[in-house]
Design a protein around this nucleic acid. Structure first.
Lengths: 108, 108
DNA sequence: TTGACATGCAGTTGTTTAACTGCATGTTTA
DNA sequence: TAAACATGCAGTTAAACAACTGCATGTCAA
């Protein structure tokens, strides 16, 4: 779970996932096309995404095709985001009270 | 958006959010109770959570009460997770083909 | 009004991270 | 089989991060 959150914490990696969502099967070369990034940097990012299970790869000859795996993200949604969406009524009430008290987060 | 993902990337901070979900209004002292962490470290984490909008605070005298704000997490769900949950059929097909080809991600 | 308390802010240090360069390995094609 | 190609792996470096210590500021209670 920690690996997934860490992987998603980087904007470059989120952009990679976006590309793979639109165009499944891109190679490493495809992924860096149009960017300033070196091949080796992108490769490291892919490793992190693979370790988190967010990207699955398949070798075809000398090319490595990359595919987005949406399951871990759905996992986050199910096991984590849902919990906070179902915020209990009293918690929301407390938050509202804090906000309505004119709280700015700054000490008076 | 980047601030939210970065804030969620740390396990300590996710635990803080869990505590605030269960017990709205905890102080900094409450948050570090039972942990090895120093007050100052926890304070830094809270700053990061506040900057991401995940935590809202209210001063009551010399105490600072902390509240979870579920809105940014719901934002992530709406603007980001949904996109990957609605993965297009052909993308899933491509992924399945990659997996069924016995791909281990390792070069043959 | 003074001492205990809750927190903030500044600075230090060790670890992690992300970029790079250089070289190695396996694959296709002429 | 040799050259061009796609990628991997190792090592370096600079920036970001997370923990700490020490000191300052504002609040409560005797």
């Amino acid at each position: 779970m920690d690996l997934i959150f860490k992987a998603l914490a980087d904007a470059t990696r989120r952009e990679m996932l976006d590309k793979l969502l639109d165009q499944p099967g891109l190679t490493l070369g495809d992924l860096i096309a149009g960017t300033e990034m070196r091949r080796q940097s992108a490769s490291k990012h892919v490793q992190i995404l693979e370790a988190a299970g967010l990207v699955v790869t398949e070798w075809q000859g000398r090319e490595k095709k990359h595919f987005l795996n949406p399951v871990p993200i759905q996992e986050i949604n199910r096991r984590w985001v849902d919990k906070y969406s179902r915020t209990r009524a009293d918690a929301i009430l407390n938050l509202k009270q804090a906000l309505e008290a004119g709280s700015t987060g700054k000490r008076k």
